[in-house]
Amino acid sequence: MEKYLIVGLGNPGDEYQGTRHNTGFMILDAFAKASNIVFDDRRYGFITQTAIKGRQVTLLKPTTFMNLSGNAVRYWLGKEKIPQRHLLVCVDDIALPLGHFRLKANGSNGGHNGLGNIQQLIGHNYARLRMGVGNEFPRGRQVEWVLGRYSDDELKTLQPAIDTAVEIIRSFVLAGIDITMNQFNKLGR
């Protein structure tokens, strides 16, 4: 059976719920809800599993905090014996406007500390789904922006992209990264 690891980056704890930096968690929560599965608190993160047409899919929301996400990713890749090419990391991105997204097969961390830690521990060769959270913050206020909560209007703008992210995860598992990029990146605006 082919195995996949889908990771949503964020910070654990109620104080971070609904923040821009927890957009990766929001994507995985939407996927879990659509799949009628629930997360369990396990080592290094909240974990749940499902199958899509005979493929095992493990969803991970690390509890290691954003800047140490690589520990959880490395552990679960190894524990489940999942090849790195079957890893997709969902993450917030201030370089993209709110509700825009970009799927990439590999690349740099783009200044994102969570991706930076993952790359430090496992390298650059894994897929990532970057979800735009906008960048309407004054110079030097980036941390306040990403740790700030979405407004109701922002959530309305973001929701269609989260719904699309659920479809992207399914496509990544069933069709692979290249076909999924070709199909969805044009929708990301």
Rank of each mutant, 00 (worst) to 15 (best):
M26C: 00
T19H: 07
G116F: 00
G148S: 14
L187Y: 00
Q183R: 11
H86D: 14
K3I: 02
D40I: 12
I94H: 11
P97G: 05
S171E: 04
K3E: 06
D29P: 04
A34C: 11
I169R: 02
M26G: 03
F65S: 05
E15Y: 09
I122K: 04
G18V: 01
I177G: 03
G45H: 12
T19W: 02
P97D: 14
L77I: 08
G188D: 01
L115P: 01
Y16W: 13
F31T: 08
H124T: 15
K156M: 11
R85Y: 05
N185R: 02
N106E: 15
L9P: 10
G111N: 07
D93K: 05
I37L: 05
W145M: 10
V173C: 08
N109I: 07
H21E: 00
D178Q: 13
A105D: 03
V7G: 02
D152I: 14
R128G: 12
H112Q: 07
G45F: 14
L174V: 08
T50A: 14
V133C: 13
T19C: 03
N22G: 09
S171L: 04
Q183E: 13
G54M: 00
V143E: 15
D40F: 10
P62A: 08
K3N: 01
G116L: 07
P160S: 00
A161M: 05
I168N: 02
L115H: 04
Q119M: 15
T19Q: 03
L60D: 09
D14M: 13
G99M: 01
T180C: 05
I168S: 03
Y16M: 08
N11P: 05
F39K: 03
L103W: 06
I179M: 11
K79A: 13
S35E: 15
L68M: 12
I27Y: 06
A72P: 01
G132I: 06
G176D: 02
D163K: 00
I169S: 04
R74M: 14
Y4I: 02
F172N: 06
G54N: 06
W145R: 01
H21T: 01
D152L: 15
V133P: 12
G8A: 11
L9V: 12
A165R: 05
R74G: 11
P138D: 14
G78P: 00
A32R: 05
L88W: 01
M66N: 08
G13Y: 11
N125P: 10
M181N: 02
A34Q: 10
D40R: 14
G116N: 07
V173H: 09
D93W: 01
F184A: 07
E2G: 03
H86W: 11
R170N: 09
K156S: 10
I162M: 06
V89R: 04
L68A: 05
T50M: 15
I37F: 02
D41T: 15
N182H: 08
S171Y: 01
L9S: 07
Y75Q: 00
